[in-house]
């Protein structure tokens, strides 16, 4: 289980994420390799390198997990084998 606020790095690229919604399992990967707080750099899986973008929130289809990409990278994000997609958020007018 990973708590909100936990930050993880990709083992295959520069990507970094922060957990927003509690994740039941630790099976979060980027570019085909498990993410960790300080992973050893390794080769990515060429089929799983669609990139992830800073500032975007990623969720699975059931929205049981949500992460924030805090540093862009070349790998794409997977949770329990399922590719995460960006979450559509309603654009609000600036109120500050």
């Amino acid at each position: 289980m990973m708590k909100p606020g936990t930050r993880l790095k990709s083992a295959v690229c520069d990507a970094e994420i922060m957990i927003i919604k509690i994740a039941e399992s630790a099976d979060l990967s980027c570019g085909g390799q498990l993410m960790a707080e300080a992973p050893e750099r390794t080769e990515g899986d060429g089929d799983r390198m669609h990139g992830c973008l800073i500032g975007k929130r990623y969720v699975n289809a059931e929205e049981t997990i949500e992460v924030l990409c805090v540093k862009s990278g070349d790998g794409s994000l997977y949770y329990e084998g399922q590719e995460l997609m960006t979450k559509d958020t309603k654009k609000l007018p600036s109120s500050d």
Binding site: I20, I54, K56, L68, T89, S94, S95
Partner: peptide, 24 residues
């Protein structure tokens, strides 16, 4: 707490939503 303030910002502001010419 951090969680309150971060929730507010993530829920209401688009990251890098401003272009370079904007000023508040």
């Amino acid at each position: 707490r951090h969680e309150h303030l971060v929730s507010y910002i993530l829920g209401s502001v688009e990251f890098m939503g401003a272009d370079e010419a904007e000023a508040a």
